[in-house]
């Protein structure tokens, strides 16, 4: 009985690995989860959830244009991601409209442009893949691009780890000791655009913002140490990506939705049971 169930579980886990597309999907999803999870710590601490939503939607026309021109889609996404943020800053500065309104206005405009372009430029772009992701159908060149972007994002985050943390925590101090905070601001936005690009391959444009905030929010409930927060965010994000892909395979459900749902469930568990900040405060008597 026991032996049988072990065999059962191991076949559940291992059988999918016999397919090339599943191995690829699992690897890419775990990697994307890790990259987005790492960045999500900065997004949640800086309070950039809305900005993440905006940038991830605004990359849409960039992806379409890049595909149409045969350029790497990350390039198009990057240009439009950073461009949207520059536009947000410009409109905010030059008008009396409040920032959240400007953000909403700009990203929906970009997104609409993307939709129009997809319908006009008849190519082999599948709208559904952009909107909802398709880790099970990812091509080899996309895998390579994801690897390169992920490597760049992670290395940059590691090198500027402390400066970015200081920038999120106390930009005034950062500036007063001569650190170029404008540069850090745009660096973080660049990383956000790039992470949105890799994220949209697994969960799609609409849900990528979840990858960019949920793991950070979950980790934030679990610890008071920044380093530990990044580790927890990376772990929870890549583990939920892997679980999400498996569930999607077994029960034939939409992969992006499955990944984000797993993330949300993990967040809910932390929200309820986190040792110190969970609403049930399971170990409230034990001091961390």
């Amino acid at each position: 009985m026991n032996v049988l169930s072990v065999i059962n579980i191991s076949s559940l886990l291992l059988d999918p690995l016999s397919h090339e597309f599943m191995r690829r999907a699992l690897m890419v999803s775990a990697l994307v989860g890790a990259v987005c999870g790492l960045l999500s710590c900065y997004m949640t601490l800086k309070g950039w959830a809305l900005m993440g939503d905006a940038v991830s939607h605004a990359v849409m026309p960039g992806v379409v244009v890049a595909y149409a021109l045969g350029l790497p889609f990350s390039l198009g996404a990057f240009v439009f991601g950073v461009g949207s943020v520059a536009l947000i800053g410009f409109v905010k500065q030059k008008s009396r409209i409040k920032e959240d309104t400007v953000i909403g206005l700009v990203f929906t405009g970009f997104f609409a442009l993307g939709l129009v372009l997809v319908s006009k430029i008849k190519s082999n772009i599948d709208l559904m893949h952009i909107l909802f992701g398709s880790p099970l159908g990812i091509s080899l060149s996309d895998v390579n691009q994801t690897l390169i972007i992920s490597f760049f994002v992670v290395i940059t985050l590691l090198v500027f780890r402390k400066d970015l943390m200081l920038y999120c925590f106390d930009p005034t101090h950062a500036r007063s000791i001569g650190i170029n905070t404008g540069l850090l601001h745009y660096l973080l936005l660049t990383l956000l655009s790039l992470a949105a690009v890799v994220g949209l391959q697994t969960v799609g444009i609409i849900l990528v913002v979840a990858m960019l905030i949920t793991p950070g929010a979950t980790a934030y409930l679990l610890t008071d140490k920044f380093n530990r927060m990044t580790i927890l965010a990376v772990l929870s994000s890549s583990i939920s990506s892997v679980i999400g892909v498996y569930i999607s395979y077994w029960s034939d459900i939409e992969t992006g939705g499955s990944i984000v749902l797993v993330q949300t469930v993990i967040f809910l568990i932390a929200f309820l049971f986190a040792p110190r900040y969970g609403i049930l405060k399971v170990h409230s008597s034990i001091k961390p």
Binding site: M165, C168, F169, D170, T172, T223, K225, F226
Partner: peptide
């Protein structure tokens, strides 16, 4: 009050 006191930092 100017700084984010819930920031995870010692």
């Amino acid at each position: 009050e100017e700084v984010d006191c819930s920031f995870p930092i010692s």
